[in-house]
Design a protein around this nucleic acid. Structure first.
Lengths: 337, 337
DNA sequence: GCGACGACGTTATACGTAACACGCGAGGAG
DNA sequence: CTCCTCGCGTGTTACGTATAACGTCGTCGC
C-alpha cells in the first residue's frame, strides 16, 4: 500500500452527514449558533467522529492566514530550565487550541540555514528567550509578533516582555550571605552577552555596595560549563585573603567552584560558601546541595504564551515580572572567624 | 498599522519580473531546465530577491501534500542528550531542505491534548525516541512514516530503527569493572518501561554471568531522579557483604549512588566503584567524575533523519547500529581486598 | 517549401478549508 | 394580503502554490 493513506476531508464528512461542506465547516468551527440546527450539528459531529476526520492544517492556514502555532526559541536544550518554560507555554497554548514548536537557536545547532525561514510562513508569533540578538534579526522583516523572555524590558523589537524577578533573586542571595556574616564576597559571572546576566551582576554590586562593611572583592567571567567555571574559580581562590563566599551566575558555574574548592583544600561550606542560580537538577545532585535561586520556569513560559495571545488579539500587554524564591541548602554557612 | 504586514506572493514576483506566476514557480522550484531561458530565470530571481519573497509554506504544502517537515518526539527536554540528537537531525535535515520540529512527549508536558493532532497534517514523518508506546498509538492511523530511536529493532510500528550499541556499552562497563577485580556487582536499574533499559539489564546480566566467579548480587529499580536513585542505593548499600561496585542505568542514578555512599561513610572509588550511562554534563560536574558510557547522540539524530528521508524516498532502510565508547573516569577503581 | 520538433512561456486547474452572500419557507406585524 | 425578519442551510469564492496541458514562434531535416 501507499505510504500516504489519503485522509477524509470536510467534503467527505458532508457527504456522510447528508449536508453541505459549508455546514461541516461551521459546525466543526463552533460558529453555528443560529446558523445550523442542533440536530444537524449533532449529525455532522457524529459523521466526523465516525470517519476520524482531522482538518487539514495547511488548507486552514492558507485560508485564514493563521497557523495557530507559536515558535519558542531557546538558546539551548540542555538543562531543565527550558523544558519547564516549554511545558508552561504548551499548557497555555493547549487551552487556546494553539500549538508550540520549539526551536533551539542557531548557535546550538551546527550550521543551520536560517531556521526561521523554514517555518516563518506557518507561524503566528515567536517567543524568544534571552539570546544573541543576531539570531532574531531575521525576524524583523517578518512582521511577526515577538515576545521576549528574561530580557531588556524596553527592547524595541519586542511586542511584549516577560521576566522573572532576577534582581530580586540576586538581592535575596546577597541578604542571605550577609545574614550569615559574609563580608568578603567574590562574583563568578557568566561570560554571556545577555541582559539577564548583566542584571545579575548589577544587582549583586548594588546589594553589597549598600551594606556597610561588605565588599565585592573580585569578579571573574566564565563560559557556562563546569570546566570553565572551575578554571575561573581557581583564580578567585588564589586571592589573598581568600573570599569567604562566591556568588555564581548559574548552578553550573557553582559546580565548578565546588570542585575548585575541594582541590584547593577548602571545605564547603566550612571555609567557603557557594551560591548558584536557576535551581537546575544539578543543584541537588551535588554534595553539598547548592543554595540557589529558583526561577518560576513554568510560569515564565505560560506568561509568555499568554502575552503572545494578547498581542495577537490586538492588545498591548504590559511587561510582566514574576517572583522568584531563594532555595537555601547546604552549600552556604556562617562565615569563618 | 495592522500586525500582519502582507507578504509578497509569487504573483507579485511575476508582475515585478514581467512574467507569469507559473514561470516564477518553475524558476524558484529549480525545475526550469529547458522550460525557461537563463536570462528570464535570472530576472525572476532578482525580482524575488528584491521583494524579499518567501514561499507560503501552507499553500505549498496544500498543493504538494508534503510539508518537508519532520517531527522529533523526545521523552524529555532535560539533559544534554536529546539536544545533541536534535542537533544531528537538524543538520541532516537542513542539508535536504527539510525542517525539524521538536515535540516533548505528553508526560513531559502537563495535560496536553494529543500533541500529534495539531501537527499531523503538516508533517511528513516522525522520529521518536524510546518512550511509552501509548504516546505513539495515535500515529498508527495517521499513516506517517515512523523512525524509532534506541528501540526494539523488530518494532512493527517502525518504518526504520536507529540504535546506539547499548549492549556493547554495557559489556564494556562490565569488562572495565572485571578488569579492576570487582566480582560482587549490584545493578541500579531505571524503572522505566523502555526497550533501552531492558537491554541494559540483560547485557549486564549476561556479561557477569559469562565470567567465572563474578556475581550480580542485587538489582533495584528507581525513577530517573537523583533522589530516587539515592533511596534505592541506600537499600543496595545495606546489603551484607556490601557490593564493591554499583552499575547504574543512567548518570542521574549514579549521582544518587554517590550521595548515598558518602552518607554511608563509603568512599568512591576506594570502597565502592560507581558507573553511569549516557555521559551527561552531570558526569563531569560530580566529584569524583563519573565513569560512564558516551552515546553518539549527534549521530543518532543524524542517522534517524537520514533513515526518514530514505523511507520517504520509497526505500526500506535496514536497522542502523552506532558504536559507543566507554569514558573511564575517577568513580571506578580497583576492588577493595 | 513543408512538416516536425524544440525552446520558451502561458493558461488553467486543483489542493481543503472558511466564510460571504444568498435562497427559502414560516411566522409576525401592519 | 403584503412585507419584513429570522432560522436554517447551501452555492460559491478565494487563499498561494505547483504542474499538466496547451500555444507560439523559429529552425532544421528532407
Amino acid at each position: 500500500m501507499k505510504p500516504t493513506a489519503s485522509r477524509p476531508t470536510s467534503r467527505d464528512v458532508a457527504r456522510a452527514a447528508g449536508v453541505s461542506q459549508a455546514s461541516v465547516s461551521l459546525v466543526l468551527g463552533g460558529k453555528w449558533r443560529g446558523r445550523v440546527s442542533a440536530r444537524t450539528a449533532e449529525t455532522v459531529r457524529e459523521a466526523a467522529q465516525q470517519l476520524g476526520y482531522r482538518p487539514n492544517l495547511a488548507a486552514r492556514s492558507l485560508r485564514t492566514g493563521s497557523a495557530r502555532t507559536a515558535m519558542l526559541v531557546v538558546p539551548a536544550l540542555t538543562g531543565d530550565f527550558f523544558a519547564q518554560v516549554h511545558a508552561g507555554a504548551a499548557r497555555v497554548a493547549g487551552e487556546h487550541d494553539f500549538g508550540v514548536v520549539l526551536y533551539p537557536s542557531p548557535e546550538g545547532i551546527g550550521r543551520a540555514p536560517d531556521p526561521f525561514d523554514s517555518a516563518r510562513a506557518a507561524l503566528d508569533g515567536v517567543i524568544a528567550s534571552s539570546m544573541a540578538a543576531e539570531a532574531l534579526s531575521s525576524l524583523q522583516d517578518g512582521g511577526l509578533p515577538l515576545v521576549m523572555l528574561d530580557s531588556e524590558p524596553s527592547d524595541p523589537m519586542a511586542s511584549a516582555v516577560v521576566n522573572p524577578d532576577i534582581a530580586d533573586g540576586m538581592r535575596r542571595v546577597a541578604a542571605h550571605l550577609l545574614d550569615l556574616g559574609h563580608r568578603r564576597v567574590a562574583h563568578l559571572a557568566a561570560d554571556v552577552p545577555s541582559w539577564t546576566f548583566r542584571l545579575r551582576a548589577r544587582a549583586l554590586h548594588e546589594a553589597l555596595g549598600n551594606f556597610p562593611g561588605a565588599e565585592l572583592v573580585a569578579t571573574r567571567g566564565a563560559a557556562l560549563s563546569v570546566q570553565d567555571g572551575q578554571r575561573a574559580a581557581d583564580e578567585l581562590l588564589a586571592l589573598r585573603p581568600v573570599p569567604t563566599a562566591v556568588v555564581c551566575d548559574d548552578d553550573v558555574l557553582a559546580a565548578g567552584v565546588c570542585k575548585a574548592a575541594r582541590r584547593a583544600g577548602l571545605s564547603v561550606p566550612g571555609d567557603l560558601s557557594v551560591t548558584g542560580f536557576d535551581d537546575l537538577p544539578l543543584a541537588t545532585a551535588l554534595e553539598p546541595e547548592l543554595t540557589t535561586v529558583r526561577l518560576p520556569a513554568q510560569e515564565v513560559g505560560a506568561a509568555g504564551m499568554r502575552a503572545l495571545l494578547a498581542v495577537l488579539d490586538g492588545q498591548r500587554p504590559a511587561t510582566t515580572t514574576l517572583p522568584v524564591a531563594l532555595a537555601p541548602r547546604a552549600s552556604t554557612g556562617p562565615a569563618p572567624h
